[in-house]
Design a protein around this nucleic acid. Structure first.
Lengths: 353, 353
DNA sequence: CTGAAAGCGCTAACAA
DNA sequence: TTGTTAGCGCTTTCAG
């Protein structure tokens, strides 16, 4: 044993086997060295390593520019794995759903491939200030979650030679492989469902955001209605409404209220549902509501929410395997892998009266 | 710049500053060296480091047995951060709640202290086979989640000199600092609520488990009823019921059915609630149900679930800070930090008819 | 007060 | 087929 706290090293094994450490290194840890070792010694070394319970010290390997088998997850704006408020977890069911689903997929793929997953504590400001801090941290590559259009995090990292894959983002923006749901298709699904039911006065509620996905949904809303020749009444579209804002209430009790609302995500749908009930409107009789996400809370609302599902776990799995391929220097095309959303029809939508 | 891919090293800085790398190391990265450096050089080195955007290479530091600033989270039996089934996330709301809440607390504390958090991919079999694989992995210490009583993971790791803190476990079992909710108190809270309401025929449903917490709740159930002189009808206690088992149904439609049930966790409470409705029993009129966890789903059930809340985020925060203290070799007493549960009364409980 | 040098565990080019 | 050697970037003891 070495005098340090760690376990047996290749030197310990070399001594026991009566060979040099270099030979042990080649046998045990693969290596691209051209050197050949006889089967006899190979076997002997392997057996001794087994006996001594040798495990390579990833740190030392890392110093030699070998992989760490570790991918980092990072978010340019915050931490989707952390509840928004430490104490009030009231909305954790929906707010955490995004991060939890992604993590679930990431872990499945990473662990199956022998990679660890690290929540990296440093946050990105801009390329100038932040780049240096992301090197030499024992991470082979980063999964960047929902980078806003203006962020140079993805580009900054990959300029450093660090493999990056973006989630909920487009490759056109960030120039690395990425995964995203087809937001426009999701919105179309939701709206055509409402239109098919006979709705013509359709509202939209979103909460102001810098993330791309919500903004795309906003744009798609207008586009789809236009395609169907349905006018978008300005009052029916509430943008930048702060949480539980008066604007939502005004929308519901206005002179010519919508018969249906497309909520930009399930959290908003939930607020609308509670608000409608408070005002005395019945869902879906007086008001149909469609959400986006299909968070677990959707099934538990009263009535259960009709909503657009995005396959977050699958998306995350894809992202993780793209990143691992990149780390292992396979060629990965710089393109957005787009996932189809699906409409889950439940009880919150019905024909207008 | 060094010829490698990494950023500037202390050598680059030393050259620019016209000093030796050792001096730079002392100035920039603290160090316990006795050596003193003049304020003038200190300042010069610091400025150059700033200009060159120097960041220490954690890997290289690690090799010298310095901290990595990284804590690992690991579970001896599975992964609470991974949804049980990749596709069917139907119960993710409850199943993931435990892991997500813990992670939330862990991340908050770790990141605030400059520590990364790593999901370690190796799983523990037993000390003989697994110990070696947890050394030299770039992790300063482990947070072990819900180790079963028979597991030697915690003891095995700490025998290796790796700092460990256990979550949802007791220090008596594992001989390291730990955090846990006061399960017995939680059960008492739930049962005395039911007893206060007038219930005398009280059932208990748990799903078989190797984890300690559920088992403690099971034992507490019996103890509390005994304290109150209430008999525990064997039919009223369903143990080892598989998911949605017939046993639950039998309990509900038996000859002398309970008027109230203590569900060992919210997931079970949810199943019971659906089952009761299916059978035609009304909650809480015909059957009161109390859960354990206060998962977000509790508020969304119909009726909203009366349940026992465990302060998971706080517990995780405590565990993380204990571990960090341990890593930074402060003295931390080997004791279980017990957190008080609280009863959240909602609509699923009422006096018996 | 500052410089030199050893070495953490491992890899890979090169020498024997 | 095997051994030797030079580092990776950093810390720290020991000389100067």
């Amino acid at each position: 044993m070495s005098k340090r706290s760690g376990g047996p090293t290749i030197i310990d094994i070399a001594q026991r086997a009566g060979v040099h450490q270099g030979t042990v290194s080649i046998v045990l840890n693969g290596g691209k060295s051209q050197t050949r070792v006889s089967d006899a010694t190979r076997e002997r070394i392997r057996k001794i390593a087994e006996e001594m319970q040798y495990t390579p010290n990833v740190t030392a390997r890392g110093l030699r520019n070998v992989r760490f088998n570790c991918i980092g997850v990072s978010c340019s704006y915050g931490n989707p794995f952390m509840a928004p408020d430490p104490v009030d977890l009231a909305n954790a069911d929906i707010a955490d759903y995004y991060g939890a689903s992604l993590l679930s997929g990431i872990l499945r793929v990473a662990h199956a491939s022998g990679y660890n997953v690290m929540h990296f504590h440093k946050t990105w400001r801009d390329a100038k200030q932040s780049a240096a801090g992301f090197r030499g941290q024992g991470i082979d590559g980063f999964l960047v979650i929902a980078p806003p259009p203006g962020s140079d995090m993805v580009i900054g990292l990959s300029a450093l030679g660090i493999p990056v894959v973006a989630i909920s983002a487009s490759s056109d923006q960030h120039h690395v492989p990425s995964v995203d749901v087809d937001n426009a298709a999701g919105v179309r699904l939701a709206l055509e469902h409402l239109i098919g039911l006979g709705h013509r006065r359709i509202g939209h509620v979103m909460i102001s955001s810098e993330e791309v996905d919500p903004l795309i949904r906003r744009a798609s809303f207008t586009a789809v209605l236009r395609d169907h020749g349905i006018p978008v009444h300005p009052d029916h579209v509430v943008v930048d409404a702060a949480y539980r804002d008066e604007q939502m209430r005004r929308l519901l009790i206005g002179p010519e209220p919508p018969t249906a609302i497309f909520a930009n995500d399930d959290r908003i749908a939930k607020i609308l549902m509670l608000l409608a009930r408070e005002i005395g409107m019945r869902v879906p009789e007086d008001l149909s509501i469609v959400g986006f996400d299909d968070s677990p809370a959707a099934t538990l609302m009263d009535p259960p929410l009709t909503t657009v599902r995005q396959p977050l776990v699958r998306m995350a799995e894809k992202a993780a395997s793209l990143l691992i391929a990149l780390v292992e220097s396979e060629t990965v095309p710089t393109q957005t892998h787009i996932f189809d959303p699906s409409l889950v029809v439940r009880g919150s939508t019905a024909p207008p009266r």
